[in-house]
Nucleic acid binder design. Sequence first.
RNA 1: GGAGGUGUGGCCGAGUGGACAAUGGCAGCAGACUGUAAAUCUGCCGGGCUCCGCCCUACGGAGGUUCGAAUCCUCCCGCCUCCA
Length: 409
Amino acid sequence: MSRKEFPPIDEQMELLQRGAVDLVDPAQLRAKLERSRQTGEPLTVKTGFDPSSPDLHLGHTVLLRKMGHFQQLGHRVIFLIGGFTARIGDPTGKKATRPQLTSEEVQANALTYQRQVFHILDEAKTVVDDNDRWLGALGSHGMIRLAGRYTLARMMEREDFKVRFQENRPIHLHELLYPLAQAYDSVVLKADVELGGHDQIFNLLVGRDLMKEEGLEPQVVLTVPLLVGLDGHEKMSKSLGNAIAVEDPPREIYGKTMSIPDSLMWDWYLLLTDIPQSEIASRRSRVEAGDLHPKGVKQELARRLVTQFHGEEAAREAEAEFEAVFSAGGVPEDVPEKELAGSWTLTKLLTAAELAPSNGEARRLIQQGAVSIDGGRADDPFLELAPRPEPYLFKVGKRRFGRVRLTSD
RNA sequence: GGAGGUGUGGCCGAGUGGACAAUGGCAGCAGACUGUAAAUCUGCCGGGCUCCGCCCUACGGAGGUUCGAAUCCUCCCGCCUCCA
């Protein structure tokens, strides 16, 4: 194995700490980096992913990008699929217990995951592993022995457990095993560093403890913040509907980015782009002083995000379309088209064409002035539309478009 | 095993026999204002219809009492607390 050259420590430290929330602890990370520089051995960096929900969104990419930083610096990054831990389910305090996944589902999800992940990570440099490999083999005895390495008191230091215990809410025994299992991964992999979202801090620290317990050098723990979603308040998540999926089409990524609150833009710049922090700070102060219009700054962000997943060409197109549709009130490129037979009442037509979820909703939208036909507002729910050769163009609300061709049977 | 409590619309949370498709808040949708930003204001927010009205479905599930039940009774299910 050839000796690797690593960048200077300070340079590495700066990149790695960008946007990080916790770093336990900086001195130790520095020491590990120095050692790897001397020996030419890269650090082993572990990040676990729960394969239960395979749709990645920008929130996940914050972590992936941090992994990418380690890769850029020449370290060895392990993308660890929690095939075993997914079947325990990370205790969140929420009532919904996650459904137990079959190993087929886990495998299918893992593949979907990998397809999405390698938009961000360098596939050639990424080690993919699955903790089912060792945790599955542990067996009951092994698990009990593992449980013997930790105490209830230490487990109860976790905020979530503590609160639930105080409030007399249930804590199931298997939930205590989750942090242990995750910690055991670090032991097996002899991780130098473990990355995770800030919400994972407890689990990651258990990893440190367990490694010490097993006589290993403890891992350094680095966490990144949870990305705030489109609404500007809640963390980004698919179920809250405030997410941008990695596989969203260009115009969605672009448009959704444009809809975030201005105040959120700086965080996104920090966590989702590589623009130097000094540059971000300078833009921010110019916007706040009124020297720079926030729209343009946000458009650049949107462009950069589209570029990451679809390339520059797609980003330019998305921007052109955005300008045409929203700034100039035009019509998007590819409006879905439907064909229906005969004459229709406006209300029912909207429902039939899936431009409204129900007739009642369609009627409301019409009455509220949200519907236009061929560019002119339509406010009569009972308007009769007759068949004609060219399709009708409907616009519902700000961004829903549809063409409907009415045929005379 | 025993005693008690609780279960309401996407979420939180009122409602304890009729005026309840169910107060209020959040979320969502639409309009105005804009930069498809935020904030703000206004309206909507179970489904269907021939729509100032009517019909259907709905308050954990199944039965029952009643002219009438989210509200009372019985059984069942889930969740919580205390005692053992």
